[in-house]
Design a protein around this nucleic acid. Sequence first.
RNA 1: GGAGACGUCGCAUAGUCCGGCCUAGUGCACCACCCUGCUAAGGUGGAGUUCCCGUAAGGGAACCGAGGGUUCAAAUCCCUCCGUCUCCGCCA
Length: 421
Amino acid sequence: MIDPVLLREAPERFRASQAARGESVDLVDDALAVDLDRRAAIAEFERLRAEQNAFNKKVSSASKDEKNQLIAEVQQLAEKVKIAGQAVSDAESRFESVVGSIGNLIIDGVPSGGEDDFVTLRTFGEPKTFDFEPRDHVELGEMLGAIDIQRGTKISGSRFYFLTGIGARLELALMMLALDKALAQGFTPMITPTLVRPEIMAGTGFLGAHSDEIYYLPADELYLVGTSEVALAGYHSDEIIDLTNGPLRYAGWSSCYRREAGAAGKDNRGILRVHQFNKLEMFSYALPEDAEAEHEHLVGLQEEMLRACELSYRVIDIAAGDLGSSAARKFDIEAWVPTQQTYRELTSTSNCTTYQARRLNIRHRSESGKTAPVATLNGTLATTRWIVAILETHQQEDGSVKVPRALRPYLGGLELIEPVV
RNA sequence: GGAGACGUCGCAUAGUCCGGCCUAGUGCACCACCCUGCUAAGGUGGAGUUCCCGUAAGGGAACCGAGGGUUCAAAUCCCUCCGUCUCCGCCA
């Protein structure tokens, strides 16, 4: 939810933001109109209600004879109050639906446009080249006994897989490396629920345009999370938190579930795009004025992780039209995937400013003693998908894969993953 | 799965049977001031959240788990839902 007061004071900023996102600019004027309606309805209701309250005071202290007389008089007023109250809730739900559909105000500098209009901020390393024909991660995964896609689809259907043997260990090693990195930075480790209530899912902003991406269990009215961001954002919902000692930082580990509804036919091969995977996610609650610095901090930690895995990558500033409704700015880090001859997203970090917190009612107490919404930020620190880039990048001609140094301690010192057949 | 109890302004509680003196009382904690020679005790006052009007001072409305209903009037009566706890059964 955007800040309705700011909307009133500076609607042109929202028009510009909507335009950059390629979304409706007229929505801003609709929002201003429903806001006006809403406030008029509230004023009218409160005026009538105050009148009624005053009258009721008289009724309670009146004598019996007067009472009947007074009650007869006030009945009409009560009817008006009821109608006015209904008008208020109607106006409020219109307000919420219009204002709620306006995306977060983008941060200055975010490129306009859609998916292809990102700006590359920096690159690290050179795209890996080989003096032999490199194998893709599916082939390597089979040779190494690390990934079993056939049996994954046998038991669960397409986009499911087993990580087996060294593949399973590699994922755990990645998660542990990421967790240790987060721990060193003062993040609190969390293992989070993966099923959440509708209001939490809605509060994080995932039930908007992309709700068909999410698994839903109607029998229990619960949603399967696509990221532990959902649980971590909900963690402090309806709370007033203390940020005087700096941001609250959490590192959440969970399985993530995605329907990939709009991606039929895309990335069908391998484990690049799957229905279930594991992820270590960073989540920060920060003061709004600290949010941009925190965002840089998160992206910095992500870069450290990619470097630790000895991957080549680029950091991109996602264009406004490709941001989710909650994000005010988003940086993705894409690693070079040799057999695809392109960069593929391994991490994503979003600054949601106060948009998510306003929906989830997460506040802090400012110096003046007033409450105010906090800023929330999230970012990937490791996922199953990283295995794709690691296997492909560090493969050798015989199909063996060199283990990045930073991962070795988590694999009992293993330096080379060798084919099992 | 069965039975029962409960959900009140930070915490703890009163109020709910019998609707209006509840703009929700009290204790603790908190803040300011006063008193007192000392890390004690006492006194006075203040203090919640959200929203609306107003440049402001200020005024007004709503909030007793959530949402509906009855009524001139709901913390209080009725309905639905959510949550917590206890006991029993079953199963990891």
